[in-house]
């Protein structure tokens, strides 16, 4: 464990806490894409199946369980909470997530380290995570009114994978057997998807204004 990885994990954790805070404190999920949240839940389920058969560390297991629990908690609020669900931008959040899930699954069947069920699902989760933010970005472009918590949520989520890239470089040079091409390339694509967002996020932050994405 290095500082880049730990900071990345904490940003990931905080991004989720920011959403839960927004939902619980304001009783509103306006601006949050349920599609993206459901894709992340699918990512976590497929990747953390290894909770059942392998143990890395207490830290690792606790984080995995936390990510799973919070992902489903967010979905539960957005779908079933009487007050919160009325604030969901149902008409705007129309991204067809089949267009992401299907290609990622086919790619995982074709490009993986080992053709076993858990390995293919794990690989699928890596591919899907790379693009899972797209419905959220599309929703933010459609709804011109982006609140600060939503903007910070996406920024934390983008920052997390960017720090993982630094962590991978560090590990490559410090650990003998460390090579993970699938994760590296996916992580680079995942971070690149945020480039545009970060550009406008920085501008808004510098000028102390509310974030606005050009339509």
């Amino acid at each position: 464990m290095n500082l880049f990885r730990l900071t990345g994990d904490m940003m990931h954790l905080f991004s989720i806490l920011v959403i839960l805070l927004k939902i619980r404190a304001t009783k509103s999920c306006r601006g949050i894409s349920l599609k993206t949240q459901e894709l992340y839940a699918l990512v976590f389920v497929c990747r953390y199946l290894d909770l059942l058969y392998s143990f890395v560390s207490v830290y690792n297991s606790v984080m995995k369980v936390t990510f799973l629990a919070t992902a489903f908690s967010i979905i539960r609020y957005m779908r079933y909470d009487k007050v919160v669900r009325q604030t969901y931008d149902r008409e705007q959040d129309t991204f067809r997530y089949g267009f992401l899930v299907a290609p990622c699954f086919v790619l995982a069947l074709l490009i993986n380290h080992k053709f076993t069920l858990t390995e293919v699902l794990w690989t699928f989760s890596i591919y899907l995570e790379a693009v899972a933010i797209l419905p959220q970005l599309v929703l933010m472009q459609r709804t011109q009114n982006i609140d600060n918590l939503t903007a910070h949520y996406v920024a934390l989520l983008g920052g997390y994978r960017a720090l993982y890239i630094v962590n991978w470089v560090y590990r490559y040079f410090t650990e003998r057997h460390y090579k993970q091409w699938i994760v590296w390339i996916s992580g680079l694509i995942q971070t690149a998807i945020y480039a545009d967002f970060f550009y406008f996020y920085t501008i808004a932050w510098k000028s102390n204004k509310r974030l606005q994405l050009p339509a």
Binding site: M63, K179, Q180
Partner: peptide, 10 residues
């Protein structure tokens, strides 16, 4: 095997 050893990220 080496891939397994390094699969410790989240």
């Amino acid at each position: 095997k080496e891939e397994e050893e390094t699969k410790d990220e989240l």
